[in-house]
């Protein structure tokens, strides 16, 4: 039943919203990983980010996608909780809980071991419109949970115009989705973070929207 609802939501909301109401300027679509274990690392300015990233995938791949989302926000009431877990298929992350890393990332680890594709925002939360916040190292820990996790950097721009933080009126705008080549598979955290940061900066230059 939930699977059916998920597909229905994908066909009637995610796809039309992404391609008709919004509209994408996509670059580097062939860099998008079609199989896990993989992580899509994107900048985060709007609730639409996750919708658009999921919309990039064909219907048959939806079941592999697992957005990693803040438990304190997306689990705050019963409906949102049901919707997030069953339709969006999120992995809730308790950012504020005092837990060990292993406990915190257990859900991510399980998903990666099952060859899922995680959607992750290394900035931690939605930053200021159009600006990139400091990247957090959480992504490095998550990528290191299992072996051979491919991390694909993605820059999105224009979605903060369509639906900014703390706004509820959606206004149509085209947005850029620039998919980069995978980040190096190094085991050194600062090398990894620098590579990711560098790739983000490179990709930002390819955006059309202002």
């Amino acid at each position: 039943m939930n699977k059916f609802l998920q597909i229905l939501f994908f066909v009637t909301v995610i796809k039309p919203l992404t391609f008709i109401i919004l509209g994408l300027n996509i670059r580097g679509k062939s860099n998008l990983p079609m199989n896990g274990p993989a992580i899509l690392a994107a900048n985060h300015n709007s609730h639409l980010d996750t919708i658009v990233l999921m919309g990039l995938y064909p219907l048959s791949k939806v079941k592999y996608l697992r957005p990693v989302a803040a438990a304190d926000y997306f689990m705050k009431n019963r409906f949102l909780r049901w919707f997030s877990l069953n339709i969006m298929n999120i992995i809730p992350l308790e950012r504020k809980a005092r837990k060990s890393k292993d406990e915190l990332f257990a859900g991510c680890k399980e998903a990666l071991e099952n060859n899922k594709i995680l959607i992750l925002y290394p900035e931690g939360s939605r930053g200021k419109a159009g600006e990139m916040a400091e990247l957090k190292k959480g992504i490095f820990h998550i990528k290191s949970l299992t072996r051979n996790v491919q991390v694909t950097p993605i820059i999105m721009s224009g979605l903060d115009k369509a639906l900014p933080k703390d706004e509820s009126l959606l206004v149509p705008f085209n947005c850029d989705v620039i998919v980069g080549e995978p980040v190096s598979k190094t085991n050194d955290s600062s090398e990894f973070m620098n590579d990711l940061k560098g790739k983000f900066q490179e990709l930002s230059k390819l955006c059309l929207t202002k």
């Binding site: 509209g23 419109a129 224009g158 115009k161 900014p164 706004e167 009126l169 206004v171 149509p172 705008f173 085209n174 947005c175 059309l208 929207t209 202002k210």
Partner: peptide, 16 residues
């Protein structure tokens, strides 16, 4: 219209 407004800078408040 969408394409024009997406490439042309506007103030965030203008979205309304």
């Amino acid at each position: 219209l969408k394409e024009f407004l997406s490439i042309t800078p506007t103030r965030q408040i203008d979205r309304r």
